[in-house]
């Protein structure tokens, strides 16, 4: 039984993450806070493209 703990752990975490991700995608963004972000540049690398090349100004 103990051998399976890591697999169960990772699998459950992955499921939790995917659920959270999908739920977040389904939750609508409140109307007044829609921010126009350039999707194309932002999906490539969250950390960088949005700030340097997309320029959040």
């Amino acid at each position: 039984m103990k051998d399976f703990v890591p697999y169960i752990m990772i699998a459950s975490l992955v499921v939790v993450y995917m659920l959270a991700y999908l739920l977040n995608k389904k939750t609508p963004i409140p109307e007044e806070c829609k921010i126009e972000l350039d999707e194309e540049t932002c999906t490539a690398c969250h950390n960088f493209s949005c700030t340097h090349h997309g320029d959040v100004e």
């Binding site: 992955v14 939790v16 993450y17 959270a20 991700y21 739920l23 977040n24 939750t27």
Partner: peptide
């Protein structure tokens, strides 16, 4: 995985 799901959950709660 924990951090990534946390960020998603925080985002949902803030949105709601």
């Amino acid at each position: 995985l924990v951090i990534a799901s946390l960020v998603q959950l925080v985002e949902i709660i803030l949105k709601r």
